[in-house]
């Protein structure tokens, strides 16, 4: 199926429209310039972030922590989700506990992780992993449970063994749900990574946002936030590409 440029242009047009509206609202005094920087001032602060504040390096730190946390969550979460599906009693025993953890404010555990790992990016990776692995487990199990039994029977009727059924039927059938879990994982991991960087001054884009706020450089703070949004968009695009590469549509 051909993907046209229309949706991309519509998305960019919406962002441009919002930027113009914000610019006009600040210029008209409807929104205080001390609270919200006008888009032109944010754009003006970008070179400073790039050349003086090391936004490139901050991006790499946040990207590496979020990616490591999510990759670990995928490595642990997908097999764990499969186990909860394969052994129904495990699923019944642990699903509610895992779902309960999902709604718990796990970020409040960060001081404990600081004690365990010291002031290092490992704290961000561990926190990102902890919150990210939960949706991967839950969505993977859901994906496997949603695989229609007749598809497994088709493979079995052709003499497929358990490993082939997993590889050629169950995993492709569960793939959309697994990728939903991975997208949620990336979102939660990144929120937590940035949050810890902000709270514990551990570098990265979270630290940069906090630093700009402390200096009361509001345009630069918003510029750093935009870099965060762009990082998140990059992750989203990478996940979509990975899904298509693995045979998704």
């Amino acid at each position: 199926m051909r993907r046209g440029a229309g949706p991309v242009l519509a998305g960019l047009a919406a962002v441009a429209g919002l930027a113009v509206a914000l610019e006009m609202a600040v210029a008209a005094g409807l929104i205080g310039g001390f609270v919200v920087a006008p888009p032109t001032a944010i754009a003006g602060a970008m070179p400073k972030l790039l050349f003086e504040e090391g936004v490139g390096r901050a991006f790499l730190v946040t990207f590496a922590s979020t990616f490591s946390a999510s990759a670990l969550a995928a490595l642990v979460g997908i097999p764990a989700g499969y186990l909860l599906y394969r052994h129904a009693w495990l699923g019944r025993a642990y699903e509610n506990w895992i779902a309960a953890l999902f709604s718990a404010p796990l970020i409040l555990l960060y001081p404990m992780f600081l004690v365990i790992f010291g002031r290092s990016p490992a704290v961000c990776v561990a926190m990102g992993f902890l919150v990210g692995v939960i949706p991967v487990i839950l969505k993977t199990r859901e994906g496997f449970l949603g695989a229609r039994p007749v598809l497994v029977n088709v493979a079995r009727s052709f003499g497929a063994g358990e490993a082939e059924i997993l590889r050629k039927v169950l995993l492709p059938a569960a793939r959309p749900a697994i990728f939903t879990g991975l997208r949620l994982c990336l979102i939660y991991a990144m929120i937590n990574v940035v949050g810890i960087e902000f709270l514990a001054n551990l570098g990265g884009l979270g630290f940069l946002v906090g630093e700009m706020f402390d200096r009361y450089d509001i345009p630069a703070m918003y510029a750093a936030l935009i870099c965060l949004v762009l990082t998140s968009t990059l992750f989203y695009a990478l996940t979509g590409r990975a899904e298509r590469w693995l045979g998704g549509r």
């Binding site: 007749v150 598809l151 029977n153 088709v154 079995r156 009727s157 052709f158 492709p172 059938a173 998704g248």
Partner: peptide, 18 residues
């Protein structure tokens, strides 16, 4: 067990959607 000699066509929709 499963039979190489017998090919089955199922009642339910059974094509692999992917």
């Amino acid at each position: 067990g499963s039979r190489r000699d017998i090919g089955m066509v199922f009642q339910e929709e059974s094509t692999f959607p992917w």
